[in-house]
């Protein structure tokens, strides 16, 4: 009996020794996921936007027309494939958004887009922008639905990369991707003016997120507006994605209608550069100002005029 026990013990010992090699078995890689906590601040999207009375268009990030802020968040892996996406709707731009998700170690691209929507709960009733090809970073685009959203069309995008090797917390400030252009037609009090006509020749179709640029169409632009010029001044505000060499063409017409005065001016819409294009319809002078508010003199005038939202 003892010999048997001894033999078993020795065999076990020998088996053990022969199983030992120089390098311990490290085992296979575990699919460990690390939590990524993303704090999103969207305030900058509307921070510099001004109304005509030189006040903040969205004071403190608040929205005055009942719209809410939609925050779309996407995570793409190193191959550009979508690994996570979420949409949160918050009251306004003053509310920060926190998103947590666990990911395998690796390189990721984080995309955040913030815009204003009308909604009932989670259901979007109206939006100026639509997200397309969200499965693929290379083709992810934010399509301009060509609504006149005015200042409520403001939209911001952030694209950043992260190498995730452990749990991380990152802060993302979403910056405006376009700019608010104010068209201001002054001196409309000339008695024979019955109509104001204006148009511009370029519109953006969509914003290509990965390339961080907007795609601009030069054709089929239908931005002709005939305005009953019964006011002393008229303004219009439009949110443009970046676009170069946009030509604004305008004309005043009498009741026949025959052209009284006409002119054009060229401007560039640049990211986060809000501009006011003032057209004196009496003299034909135009000026393009890269400032966030019109002058006090103009504010005085604006009290006597009406615009359109």
């Amino acid at each position: 009996m003892k010999n048997i026990i001894t033999s078993i013990a020795l065999i076990a010992g020998m088996l053990f020794f022969t199983s030992c090699n120089d390098k311990p078995d490290p085992g296979k890689d575990l699919d460990i996921k690390y939590q990524l906590t993303v704090s999103i601040n969207t305030k900058n999207v509307v921070k510099d936007l001004k109304d005509l009375d030189n006040t903040d268009a969205f004071p403190g990030g608040t929205i005055d027309d009942g719209s809410h802020v939609r925050v779309n968040f996407f995570i793409y892996d190193a191959d550009g494939a979508n690994v996570y996406e979420s949409t949160q709707i918050v009251d306004d731009f003053s509310k920060s958004v926190e998103i947590k998700n666990s990911l395998k170690p690796g390189d990721y691209t984080l995309v955040v887009a913030a815009d204003m929507v009308e909604n009932t709960g989670d259901k979007i009733e109206f939006a100026c922008w639509e997200f397309k090809n969200t499965d693929d970073l290379e083709n992810l685009r934010i399509v301009d639905l060509q609504y006149n959203g005015f200042k409520y069309k403001a939209m911001g995008v952030s694209k950043s990369t992260i190498n995730l090797e452990k749990a991380e917390s990152v802060k993302i400030n979403v910056e405006p991707v376009g700019a608010l252009i104010t068209f201001y037609f002054s001196n409309l009090y000339v008695s024979e003016i019955a109509y104001l006509y204006y148009t511009w020749d370029k519109n953006s179709d969509y914003y290509l997120v990965n390339e961080e640029k907007s795609n601009v169409s030069n054709t089929d632009v239908e931005n002709e507006y005939e305005i009953e010029a019964k006011y002393t001044g008229f303004y219009d505000q439009r949110y443009f994605l970046p676009v170069q060499n946009v030509t604004l063409t305008w004309a005043t017409l009498d009741a026949k209608p025959a052209i009284i005065k006409q002119g054009s001016t060229t401007f560039n819409a640049q990211q986060a550069v809000n501009q006011i294009i003032t057209v004196d319809v009496r003299t034909g002078n135009t000026k393009v100002e890269t400032k966030s508010a019109i002058s006090l003199e103009d504010i005085e005038k604006s009290r006597k005029m009406q615009g359109k939202k």
């Binding site: 078995d25 085992g27 575990l30 939590q35 906590t37 666990s102 452990k166």
Partner: peptide, 19 residues
């Protein structure tokens, strides 16, 4: 388990040998 915000699938370690 989740430790230090890392989600670790401990059960995948089953059958692992060590010295």
């Amino acid at each position: 388990t989740v430790i230090d915000d890392a989600e670790i699938p401990l059960s995948n370690l089953k059958s692992k040998t060590g010295i």
